[in-house]
Amino acid sequence: MRRTVLPVLGVVLAILAFWYVAAIPMNIREVVTEAERAGASVWGGPATERQGRSAWALAVNNAPIALNGWSQERPRLPAPHQVAQELYQSTIGEEVFSRRGIVQKGEFSNRGLVYHAGVTLGATMVGFLIGAAAGVLLAVGIVHNRAMDMSVMPWAIISQTIPIVALAPMIIVVMNSVGVQGLLPKAVISAYLSFFPVVVGMVKGLRTPDQMQLDLMHTWSASTSERLWKLRLPASVPYLFASLKVAIAASLVGTIVGELPVQRGGLGARMLAGSYYGQTTQIWAALLMAAVLAAFLVWFMGWLERRTLRAMGVPA
């Protein structure tokens, strides 16, 4: 435990330190302009002249005010504690202490990140379940039907090399124009993205039983469906979970991208809104929330995998 925790902690601290240092030159121009407006004399001459100077020179020569870069209203790069503050404000602060929050009103505030994360999570889960189920079904078909295998598999593999996410805005707008709104269009995208990894992984998994095992099933005069349920499906479980982990991360990305064109809630909508109104801290907080969500989903899949494999008696 200590062998991994300490180095990881060190790396995380190094990243935070780098982040703090980087925030100084990133924000220095705004800081200097602000100080000049407030009447202080700053190094670097008038604004037009400062344009030509490097950010580091400005930071070093204006050392007394340089650290203000960590407390800007609209920083180019917010310092970590500002992001943490925004994250706290828009989750606990919004839900517990605000009049719009769950404590006062009984439902999640639509200005809080919890609400938006919930919107994203819902669409991701619906899409993921549809995509994974369809993927497993198609894989079963592929394994049992050679015509299907040879016609569909090459396309399934090629489709993984093309940027499918680019379809997202189109699907949203088209489904919007035929009157389908809300969760479903986003779920379609995330289903589509989780579909192909599951197909490819499942086909590989369903094919793992070797000839010997299949022959054994044959000597027991097992029917095709018995072979599927009692040999192929159990054998494919490790492959299934490996591809489910990839698929759920892909569906989350799909949902977030799908939320960009239609501003009706969700982390993607939140990011785009932040980018429109220059609310950098809001983007960072939404990004962090998405990271937490992704980490949770992948962890959950890993947990499910361990539980299932242990229940099946596979040595961990």
Partner: peptide, 25 residues
């Protein structure tokens, strides 16, 4: 031991989300 866990964690994140920030910078 320090970077690999962080790296595999980052590899699973929806990094496309940094796009608005990068466009701003």
């Amino acid at each position: 031991r320090g970077l690999l866990p962080v790296g595999s964690f980052m590899a699973a994140l929806p990094i496309v989300g940094v796009a608005p920030i990068m466009v701003m910078w």
